[in-house]
Design a protein around this nucleic acid. Structure first.
Lengths: 348, 348
DNA sequence: TTGTAGGCGTTATCAC
DNA sequence: GTGATAACGCCTACAA
């Protein structure tokens, strides 16, 4: 019995030396076992090693291994908005790929704040992450370039940063938006309002709007200038813009296009508040499919992004670069899918 | 000029030795600086150190530091389903707290699969995480206990595991569900169907159902046995259960209660398919508020969970334990909030 | 088939 | 105020 009042000693994590001693071999042999070099170990030794590891519940220390090998087996993922379902789906895709290869993921959420983003990149550097997948705010070109200089694979998702040579994975926004816009024209809408958070230099938004105007201009459609921008956090701005569109299009058959999922929701909310019915009074559609899109009203027409696959492809690209591939940077644009539902009926 | 054809050497990450040399001091002094021990460094030295660090873009290697200090400054978070908005909100809350304290988060998603969960816990152990926040499947008691034995703070969210002494953070399910049920009774529903994924030993589901039946039994209400369980991935099961409820309650005023957000969506979908109108033909409500709950029909009545705060509190608890707090394990049950919308009108 | 020795980048312990 | 030195746990030549 323990006469002192000390708490029971917490069992210290076993080290490779403990395992070596228990198995009656040297650390080298254990290390060989850990790196899968079974063929240079005798059967009986193998057995003793396995028993020792199980007995001691040995888990190789990744920090020690990482320090020695100068690689952490961790991939950083920095999201502009982790609460967006887009992000979690990408995360799942990426995780499923990298887990199979023994990598772990360190995640961060910047809330679209360039300062947070900068700090997180620094944190990632301190972790000596082997690769980075980032949904960038677009304001930290310098550090991103710095990482690239250090030969750390960086893959951008959703957004590209002009002038930066990184691998990029996202939806083929131009193509998907063109298809969608042509569909809206076929449905016979006289006016289509493009509602977006400030396009500025966010490439995905810009591509969508460009496709929109290109198709409209080609068709000689009057909505070429129907762009309505607002800050997502400022409901007043959105309502003001909506008001502007509604007034300008009074008496015409019309619809709203939302640049992303969150904008869809905000617009639907605003329409309901104003007592406008979907689709009788006004049509609506938007980028990003979701669980709720099918069940709102008679369903919302959306452009689905292949989010899970975007995550997979981004991680595969990181691993490919890690594997030594030094070919030209690639821009991977995956097809989006127009999902037609009840919110955009024919106006003819 | 470089006569060989080698690519330009990628600038190697600076080490503490490089900084020491650049600043003309010893590694020890740099280390002192890094640990914030400024008062034992002269002003001029301090200045040279700061210049050297900036110049070399030095980032302390967390693996080396972690190895030496036997702590990783990483917290593991294991989610049963990361695509559930519940999870991301918890994640954000946890992240905001731990970032302020210099910790990073390693995330995993188990898809409610105990095998994946086990592998991920092993991975976390290899990372030597300083603490673990887990939304447990409930099937890996042994390893979780093992971690606790090693003095690693483990905090459970949403679900408790019977017989395990861990800190726990979640919603006060019993209280919130009681309030909601009383409200439904007040509205005058003759039958209320409780739709849930298998309750089994998932404590949060069990608490909700218990509160439900307790209130009903107290009121002598006939729905005490109106439990309808189904596997979330099997739509046929859900529809079968829904059919059963619809038939059994024909002619009565009735509503469905969904045990969580995903179930809400599935039920709404199934009702629409059957041509049943909400709330004219049948009412609906459920646990978990969401962005879409206000905009479906005249709004869905929900019980909102304080998800962000759950994440915060869980992380705070981890840090508190890390700080040496050895008091009794705590069960933190945060208040939920009943949000009444149009899907559960009075039946009187 | 197995073992020895040195070092990865830090911090802690002493010493000056 | 500052520095030399020995670990931390692992891997990788190089030997045997």
């Amino acid at each position: 019995m323990n006469s002192t009042n000390e708490p029971p000693k917490s069992p210290q994590k076993a080290t490779i030396a403990d395992v070596a001693k228990a198995a009656g071999v040297s650390k080298t042999t254990i290390s060989r076992y850990l790196s899968g070099d079974y063929k240079s170990i005798s059967a009986s030794t193998l057995k003793r090693i396995e028993e020792a590891i199980a007995e001691l519940r040995y888990r190789p220390n990744r920090m020690a291994r990482g320090l020695r090998q100068a690689r952490s087996y961790s991939i950083g993922m920095i999201f502009a908005d982790i609460s967006n379902p887009y992000s979690t789906s990408v995360l799942r895709g990426a995780e499923d790929v990298c887990t199979r290869h023994g990598y772990s993921i360190i995640v961060c959420n910047t809330d679209n704040d360039p300062v947070k983003e900068k700090n997180y990149i620094h944190m990632m550097q301190a972790h000596r992450i082997d690769g980075l997948i980032i949904h960038p705010t677009g304001h930290n070109k310098d550090i991103l370039n710095e990482m690239a200089d250090e030969r750390i694979p960086v893959v951008l998702i959703d957004r590209e940063i002009p002038g930066l040579a990184f691998d990029t994975v996202g939806t083929d926004n131009y193509r998907a938006m063109s298809e969608a816009t042509r569909f809206f024209l076929d449905q016979g809408y006289e006016r289509i309002g493009f509602f977006s958070q400030p396009i500025e230099h966010v490439s995905s938004r810009a591509e969508r709007f460009l496709a929109f105007t290109d198709v409209l201009r080609n068709a000689g459609h009057p909505s070429v200038n129907d762009l309505y921008e607002f800050e997502i956090r400022k409901n007043a701005q959105l309502e003001e813009q909506l008001e502007r569109f509604i007034e300008a299009t009074s008496g015409q058959s019309r619809m709203l296009f939302a640049v992303n999922g969150i904008t869809q929701l905000k617009l639907i909310n605003a329409l309901q508040t104003r007592g406008l019915r979907i689709p009788e009074d006004i049509g609506i559609a938007g980028f990003d499919d979701s669980d709720w899109a099918p069940v709102i009203g008679s369903g919302i027409t959306t452009v689905a992004q292949p989010t899970y696959e975007i995550g997979q492809r981004a991680m595969e690209k990181v691993l490919q670069r890690l594997g030594g591939d030094d070919s030209a940077k690639e821009r991977i644009a995956l097809p989006g899918q127009l999902i037609i539902r009840g919110s955009t009926p024919s106006q003819k």
